[in-house]
Computed example of a mutant assay.
Amino acid sequence: MATEIFVHPQCPHCASVIEQFDAAELTDITDIRNLKAFLAYRDSLDGYADIRSQGKIGVPSKVIDGETVEFFDQV
C-alpha cells in the first residue's frame, strides 16, 4: 500500500501532522514536483470534491494507492 501525506510547512493545520510523522513519510508541496503530484490528485480524485467546492487547498491530506483520500482533523 502506497501512502502519500501531503503537507506544507507554513500551513497551520499541517503543524501537528508534521510533528507526528518522520520527514521521510511526508510529501512537502513546496517542492514543485510534489506540488504537481498533489494537484493532479486534488483536481481528479472524488475524495477532494468537497475541498474543491469549498475553495480550500486540501492539506494536510493522505492519498492511499493513488485512489483513496483521507483527511486529518483540519484541512
Rank of each mutant, 00 (worst) to 15 (best):
V59M: 05
D43W: 02
F71M: 00
R33S: 14
R52S: 01
D73P: 08
V63Y: 00
Y41I: 01
H8M: 10
I51W: 00
D22F: 08
F72G: 01
N34V: 09
S44C: 06
S16L: 09
A49V: 01
R33N: 14
K56H: 08
C11H: 08
D43Y: 03
V63N: 01
Q54T: 08
Q20V: 05
K62A: 02
L39P: 01
P9T: 13
A37P: 02
Q10L: 13
K36S: 12
F38L: 05
D22N: 13
C14G: 10
E25F: 06
Q74T: 14
L45I: 05
S61T: 03
V69E: 00
D22A: 12
I64G: 03
I51P: 00
A24H: 08
L39Q: 09
Q54A: 15
R42C: 05
N34M: 08
D73K: 06
Q10N: 15
A49N: 01
Q10T: 10
D73Y: 07
D31V: 13
D50G: 03
K56L: 15
L39D: 03
Y41M: 02
S16Q: 10
P9D: 15
R42Q: 15
R52E: 02
A37H: 09
A2I: 14
K36A: 14
D65P: 07
T27C: 07
Q10A: 14
H8S: 13
T3K: 10
S53V: 03
I57S: 03
I5K: 02
V7M: 11
N34K: 08
L39M: 12
P60W: 04
A23M: 08
F21H: 09
S53T: 06
G58E: 09
R52I: 00
A40T: 10
V59D: 05
Q20D: 13
V7R: 14
V7K: 07
Q54Y: 07
C11E: 10
D73I: 05
D65E: 14
T68C: 02
I32V: 15
F6T: 06
F38D: 03
K56F: 12
V75G: 06
M1W: 10
A15Y: 08
D28T: 10
K36C: 06
S44T: 15
K56T: 03
D73Q: 13
G47F: 04
G58T: 06
E67C: 04
T68L: 05
F71N: 00
T30S: 10
A2F: 13
E70L: 02
D31Y: 11
A2H: 14
A24V: 10
K62N: 02
M1L: 14
I29G: 11
L26Q: 08
L35S: 11
K62F: 01
A49Q: 05
S53R: 08
T3A: 08
V7H: 13
Y48R: 01
I64R: 04
H8C: 13
D22T: 11
F72V: 00
P60T: 05
P9F: 15
R33L: 11
P9W: 13
L45Y: 07
E70G: 01
G66I: 07
P9K: 15
E25A: 12
D28M: 11
E4A: 08
S53Y: 01
I5C: 06
F71Q: 02
V75I: 15
F72Q: 01
